[in-house]
Amino acid sequence: MPNVLVFAEVNDGVLHDVSLQCLSAARQVAGAGGRVSCLLAGHGVAGLAPALVAAGADSVAVADDERLAAYVTAPFAKAVGACLDANPADLLLLAASTVGNDLGPAVAAARKAACAVDCDGVAAQGGTISLRRAGYDRKVMTTFVPAAAGLVVGTLRDGAAPAPAADAARQGAIAPLALDLTPAELVSKVLRRDVAKKTVNLKDAKIIVAAGAGVGSPDGLALVRELAQALGAEIGATRAVVDAGWLPADHQIGQTGATVRPDVYLACGISGAVQHRVGMMDARTIVAINSDANAPIFKIAHYKIVGDLKVVVPKLAKLLKA
């Protein structure tokens, strides 16, 4: 049974929910005979270790160090390496986040390990670990296996494994991890961060009205906002809208934003790029409004409205208020 190391990512003092999903995937892969250990690295993070034990870790190595206050590849990769040296693992799992997708490959490159990112699942059969990923516009499921024995590194997408049930009675060893960093490992510096605080809760929203670049301007967005209000819905956005500065980043849905599964998803002026679709395609009912009848979003929409959102959206809002 393989031993698995999970990198527990912490953002603003909160454990990344996909890291917790990695723990449940790790437990499943490790089975009864394998060990699941966790690396908790950062500054002021030690208090989170018991939550990792409750979520399924047999042991937690804690690297609580002020030099780890901001994520920079080299010192974090060193911490993962130290952890692997002390407790050899067959599989390293991380969240497919901007941290995990940077750190996982860095560790793999340093150790010449097999690596796949953005995976939709992981399995161990007959001693072989495999990772699978939907690619080619989610038209092909590719299964990867290591070319030779040794460490396998994988990052998992949101939803690739279920969230683990927390069991406060679980026992696990929590121990500090000493970090010996060389000047060469500290050359990269985060000068400043410009990161939004979470103000919307898209994950729990029952209805989401999402705006795409098709809204065209803050005025167009105002129409969408009005419809959301009439529906009692949260407002989501594509990356194009966030990059235009029309909505803050916490509204973004998709690969680099939130993954949502609402009852109703109303896509307004969204083309339906795969990076957006992966974040919303499991919504129960999808309504799409787009002036382009060939927009890919229509391929996954239950209700297709081909038209100008500047006309259709106010109509819908009016009908709801009537």
Binding site: C115, V140, T142, A147, I300, A301, H302, K304, V306, L319
Partner: peptide, 26 residues
Amino acid sequence: VAMKVATMEAIAPRVIESQQVDPESE
């Protein structure tokens, strides 16, 4: 080479019952 492709399988497209809604019709 450290990682190789074992298998590639087509993912069946999702069959979605969808309907067109006429934006002109209230």
